[in-house]
Design a protein around this nucleic acid. Sequence first.
DNA 1: ATTAGTTATGTTAGCGCTAACATGGTGCGA
DNA 2: TCGCACCATGTTAGCGCTAACATAACTAAT
Lengths: 337, 337
Amino acid sequence: MAENSPPQGRDHPAELPPTLSAVAKLAGVSSITVSRVVRLPAQVAPETRARVERAMRQLGYVPNLVAGALASARTNSVGVLVPTIANSIFADTVQGLSDKLEPAGFSVILAQSRYDDQLEDRMLAALLSRRPEAIIMVGSPATEDGARLLRNARIPVVETWDLPAHPIDAVAGFDNFKAGVAVARHLIAQGRKHLAFIGGNEPRGTRRWLGFRQETLAHGLPEPQRLILDRNAPGSAAANLHLPDVDGVFAANDAYAIGFMAGLRKAGRLRQAAASEQPVAVVGLGNLEMGQLISPSLSTISVHGHSIGRTAAALTLERGGERHIDLGFELVLRDSG
Amino acid sequence: MAENSPPQGRDHPAELPPTLSAVAKLAGVSSITVSRVVRLPAQVAPETRARVERAMRQLGYVPNLVAGALASARTNSVGVLVPTIANSIFADTVQGLSDKLEPAGFSVILAQSRYDDQLEDRMLAALLSRRPEAIIMVGSPATEDGARLLRNARIPVVETWDLPAHPIDAVAGFDNFKAGVAVARHLIAQGRKHLAFIGGNEPRGTRRWLGFRQETLAHGLPEPQRLILDRNAPGSAAANLHLPDVDGVFAANDAYAIGFMAGLRKAGRLRQAAASEQPVAVVGLGNLEMGQLISPSLSTISVHGHSIGRTAAALTLERGGERHIDLGFELVLRDSG
DNA sequence: ATTAGTTATGTTAGCGCTAACATGGTGCGA
DNA sequence: TCGCACCATGTTAGCGCTAACATAACTAAT
């Protein structure tokens, strides 16, 4: 091994961060011993260990996991792909999976697809090139290219927030179609006759819509209206204007629901609290805490985003066992409908 | 190097993922040429490039950035440390920085400190061991150990959501103390005399409290009450019970504010809309979209979380220039006070 | 033709670490 | 006493890639 020569041709002769072998040299041991102190301390004699630890502290050694990953073929990282993290129910899921993954020594590499199929494929490729030991994503790959990429990676893949019919590997989610059915059934049982659905047109929202629509038609009611809103404008208060004759609304998420209720309020079509039945019933999805705090409090489909994350993480950590987990949902009835 | 038998099907690659040199062999070039096709395509003759690209497609080659990072000493990743991502204003900041970083080819390694100083240090060490090219964090390291770790890493470090007096490197935030001052001044100008502050006791919240308190005392008013709430229970509706005689409240974030307003509503101490002045004025912080939608709409300090993220990312990407950026805040007055 | 500059590609030597195997003590029962 | 398991530590050979330096094969200019 060459003597420790200074960096050549660099602008800054700044001292490079200490390496394993620098520590080894200072402690008077071989580098593998230092490596063992870091990873398998029990295998090293207490005296030696103490000496090495002193050397590490003295040099401010920080292990280089990039090199370690290359040598051991284990990166201890998990790729996470969500449509978006801002103002979103997916933040709970990311929190949930971090809660499990970080204590287990895994890092989370986060990527956002922004509901863009092309970008999703590119982010998937970018994630995989970092050789994560698993991929957790919201939904399923939008394109066949993306799916192939994941299959070829030969690592655990967890699809969440849905129950795809033909998953790549594991699943932790709930049935969006059934959620739509449940809301329609509830509104119809209340005697509502003019139903509408508001939300984006992404895959899971669309599945909710399909369930909602099917159940409505099955009861002999007219086809519900579907209002597709811009993602950036859940100030969908104005949505109310487009749905003047409606008496029951399912919003694809609580943010839309609360925005819509603001519109109803402005139009005087909303009562405070549960004084009497709402002229227009509104049901959201996500069970945001906010929904309980507003007036009238929001009825919603509660979906356990945090559990989805925890379960997804568990599915990447533990091989074997059930790999297709339906975490269900609950219709939580409050004052809004 | 054993010669594994090559796979026959195009969709199913070998047991081991294909490497650069497997592609090189198939294309009949040296591995550095394949490397160039991936990173510097302009340097390769179009014919050769086409041949290599075909080989890559045929094998389903996905570059191994772990190996690339070790060889080039560039990981193209940035470590991001936030207290928490769920239900939080920091999600906007993470979104903002991703928006800048991902197109530039950087991955985000996300870690959460959960407002725990020890855990923060551990997450910092975990992040640094992956050799990110920069660290972006909310706030400043809580311990001297953490600060030392960051200084020794010799990479750009951006502290956000605050304006620390002695930053490690760069800053993108706003003055939390002044935010507290601004709210106190506003409430006092309204003639409010019995002020209170609700929030957690984390560093930035505390800074808001100190500004709020100082300004209140400077006006000769009695010391405001400070109610420290559990982070997990922003169902601070009940907080109202602890503050019976108060007529002006600053909540450290909008979630607390909305929760508190729910308590006021229950107690009949809140008017709908701006019909007349609120018996108890409430001002939040964060400018959640929700705040505009509820009734009465929430007055708040608006803080540009997304810009903080974008600016922080810019500070890691561009060296030189101003590295201490105050993004300010705005007092947005609505119906709640 | 000689020299030098260009372009396209190749060769060599690691990056910092770990898996796998090797070594040399030590204790202990037969 | 030998034989052998058992520790603690060391040696060797890469992991898959890229920086830096060759090397050809041309072209253009002298």
